[in-house]
Design a protein around this nucleic acid. Structure first.
Lengths: 341, 341
DNA sequence: TTGTAAGCGTTATCAG
DNA sequence: CTGATAACGCTTACAA
């Protein structure tokens, strides 16, 4: 009834522990016939390797750094919380973790951080930062030093990063459009706002949004993207303008950060429950707005999955193992008032 | 740079390994002063216990059985696949797993299976079965034998099960209603079908559906639930009736199993892309229907989460540890054509 | 090409 | 009350 161990396999196959190990790990120096004997025993007993015992014996250590944008963003806060939780739990088995905060919009500071990483005492890095040529160079350096590098939440597609952990923002935009179009009954004007179109995420979301709007809801009019540059006053004036001069607007798609000022402005303008508003990222504030019917839908990614996936993928790349793509695909989650969890 | 171990703590505190272990595991027979010394060392070095090494030394084994409905249901197929995957991965650390299939609608067979379990060689059971008095009794017996018992996917609320792993079906129905109402623009008639209203899941979903329809979309008319008893012919006639006699019907909510015959009937009637159809469970067939715009939305639960959660919870109950409720809450996922993953 | 023995971080048993 | 010491399942020198 109990799980078979390497000892059982050795006995069953009539060989030693070391030989079993060699076969299991595909190490050289074993006769074909012996390999077959061992594999047969494995098959017969239904042996499953105990990865944890293996890592224990191997003394494997994974030293990772997470480079995250600093500042009071609700998103990075939840990200850090998820990281702490993962670290305390079994997910972070054999992992030594450190997080580094960098100013989100200071490319030089980001590069400085990346350059200051001691590549000799490190096995992998997860980076959440906007892509710039300097960042690309810094990543190239990390890769040359043999580290595993993943982009987190926002992709660095032209860098040498091994993998991107996050949602496909084109699909996210398409999903938003499908919801918007269906909620609006396929008619009316839609306002699109973001804090900044310099962010690749916003660009991709807009692209996807437009694709579906054009193909599925040709009668709807999507207005040009409006940037608020993280300025609440600008947000206020954008909304005020809509209220006064744009009676045809039925919906609003908030692609980027800054949902708090947006919701404030809508409330001030008295249009909170009235426009169809779709935003990104589930946070305490957006959650509350869903409950109040001020947001029609939130499109989000599960931050817990994000960090667990990052950990798994970094490990896999360190061991040059293949990853199970399907498991690492971060889902685009749609949250309404009724499935707030 | 490397993680401190019990050896480091022992050295730092000037005591032996055994004493450190006693303190860490809160075992009796250690002087207050020594406890303080050890804890101080733990604090100073930032020690985190290696759970896997601990379990290895402890020789802990968790022997679990999953009792699942047999038959060619797409849902149970994916469930079994997820179980196999979890078993092969690190989630099932120290777990010995067996699955038992029982005829879904034969209460006696279910009870026979439950009674035939050897409680001496078992630590926990996960059960997916409709609740009957006999099932309740069988579960009571398992609990008396000291096993951990969880209900999987469908709850057994009046039994002595320790926990329910699955979605809240009332919320699922509410979510469906919110989607339906918004997609339909708050007007029109809605047809509700299920294979059987004897299932608690369908009852609860209907309840939630009606709640939101009444409160949020008072102008919409929800027709009485129609049961198809897993009979494709009945499904055909239901749809045909709608086409001929119910011009006001704009939407269809499929609460239960049987999406394949439903979709076939809709196609035959030529209403496939036209009605707003919302169904449950993401399977190859419903996935395809989403892509074809034949389904407007699918409400589903992630089966991988389901089994991982079951494993975690069973383990926790075996060790009489508390569980982290938030982590075990299974999300109600909304899937549209654009976030099919 | 194969086997022996030590050790990974933790727990458990037995003396002191 | 406290401390050696031998496991757990696996890997890895080093020997044969």
């Amino acid at each position: 009834m109990s799980k078979p161990t390497v000892h059982d396999i050795a006995k069953e196959a009539g060989v030693s522990l070391a030989t079993v190990d060699r076969v299991l790990n595909a190490r050289p120096g074993v006769r074909e016939k012996t390999i077959a004997k061992v594999n047969a025993a494995v098959e017969r007993l239904g042996y499953v390797r105990d990865t944890y015992a293996a890592n224990l014996a191997r003394q494997r250590q994974y030293r990772f750094v997470f480079v995250l944008p600093e500042g009071p963003s609700q998103f990075t806060e939840t990200l850090k919380a998820a990281l702490k939780e993962a670290y305390a739990s079994q997910i972070a088995d054999r992992v030594v973790l450190r997080t580094v905060s960098v100013p989100a919009n200071d490319p030089h500071a980001i590069v400085r951080s990346l350059r200051s990483l001691d590549t000799d005492r490190l096995d992998g890095v997860a980076i959440m930062a906007p892509e710039t040529p300097q960042v690309r160079d810094a990543i190239a350096r990390l890769k040359e030093a043999g580290l595993a590098v993943v982009a987190l939440a926002t992709d660095l597609p032209n860098s040498k990063r091994d993998y991107f952990i996050g949602i496909n923002n084109l699909s996210a935009g398409r999903t938003a459009a499908l919801l918007m179009g269906r909620f609006a009954g396929g008619r009316g004007e839609v306002l699109v706002v973001t804090n900044s179109m310099r962010s690749r995420d916003s660009l991709e979301r807009r692209l996807g949004f437009d694709e579906v709007m054009k193909s599925d809801f040709p009668e709807m009019v999507v207005l040009p993207s409006i940037e608020t540059y993280d300025d609440p006053a600008r947000m206020e004036s954008v909304i005020a303008d809509v209220v006064e001069n744009r009676p045809g607007v039925v919906g609003l798609y908030s692609m980027g950060l800054g949902n708090v000022p947006l919701l404030d402005a809508l409330r001030d303008a008295g249009r909170a429950g009235d426009l169809i508003v779709i935003a990104h990222e589930l946070t305490p504030k957006t959650r509350e707005a869903l409950q109040q019917n001020e947001l029609a839908a939130v499109i989000t990614q599960n931050v817990g999955h994000l960090v667990r996936s990052a950990l798994r993928v970094l490990r896999a790349f360190c061991d040059s193992q293949s990853i199970f793509e399907a498991q690492e695909r971060i889902r685009i989650e749609i949250v309404l008032r009724e499935n707030l969890y």
